[in-house]
Nucleic acid binder design. Structure first.
Lengths: 110, 110
DNA sequence: TTTAAAGTACGCAATTAGCGAATTACATTT
DNA sequence: AAATGTAATTCGCTAATTGCGTACTTTAAA
C-alpha cells in the first residue's frame, strides 16, 4: 500500500519535495516519507494530496475499481462530449434516445 | 473527518457490528470505533471497507469532488440506463445524437 | 572546488490503532 | 415482569505509527 503515484504526479508538475511540502503546509521530510513509502499520510493529508494533484484518493491508494453509474443519477460527475459539458436536456434526450434504440432492437427481434 | 456513511451503509445491508467486523476480519470494537469516529481505519482497512460496501474511498472519506468525464473515454466507469449497462454501440449512438442535437440547436439560432 | 538545492534516512516525542473486556441498551421469550 | 441473549458502546493497555527536526548524501551549477 504505497502511494506510488505521488512521485510521478509531482514530477509531472516539476515540483521539488520542498515545493510540494510547502504547498501542503507540512515538512519536507514528511512529504518525502509519503513518496518513499517510509511514512503514510493521515486522511487529512491524503485528501490534501488528492486535492493538490487533482485526483482521487482511490487513485492515490492504487485502487481502480469499476464504478457503475446510472446516467440520470450522475451525482457530481460531469459528462462531456467534445470537451463540452452536457446539459440536463441533452442528457435526458440521450436517455430517451437509448430507450428508443433498445425498444427498436427488441421489436426487430420479435 | 469521520466516516459518517459507514453506519448508513451497514444498516442498509442489515448487518450487525459483529457481522461486519467478521466480514472484515477485525474485532467488533475496532469496527465500532470506525463508525463512532473514535478510531479510524488504516488504509488497508479503508480499502476493505470500500470493497465490502461497494463504494469508493473518496465516498467513505466524505470527499465528493467534481469529476469530469468525456463520454467516449469512460475508463473503468460503466454507464447504465434503467439499470442496464450501455453497450459501446449505444454510447456512440448517444454521442452522435448529442452532436446532432447541438448542431440543430446552433442552426436554429442562426 | 565551493556552494546551494534536492533528495534520503533516522531518532525522538507524541499520538493512535487494534484488541479484549466490561458495561449498557435493546429485544424476545417465558 | 424477570430472564435471556444479542447488539452496541466505551475504555485501558500495548504496540505501532506519525510528523518533525536534524543530519547525511547526492546532484548541479558557478
Amino acid at each position: 500500500m504505497n502511494l506510488d503515484r505521488l512521485s510521478e504526479l509531482r514530477k509531472k508538475k516539476n515540483w521539488s519535495l520542498q515545493d510540494t511540502a510547502d504547498r501542503l503546509g507540512i515538512a519536507k521530510s514528511t512529504y518525502a516519507g509519503y513518496e518513499s513509502g517510509y511514512r503514510r499520510p493521515s486522511f487529512e493529508a491524503l485528501i490534501m494530496l488528492a486535492d493538490l494533484f487533482g485526483t482521487s484518493c482511490d487513485d492515490l491508494l492504487g485502487r481502480h475499481f469499476d464504478k457503475q453509474m446510472e446516467l440520470t443519477e450522475r451525482g457530481s460527475t460531469k459528462l462531456t462530449v467534445d470537451q463540452r459539458e452536457l446539459t440536463e436536456k441533452e442528457i435526458s434526450g440521450a436517455v430517451a434516445f437509448i430507450r428508443v434504440t433498445r425498444q427498436m432492437e427488441e421489436e426487430q427481434v420479435l
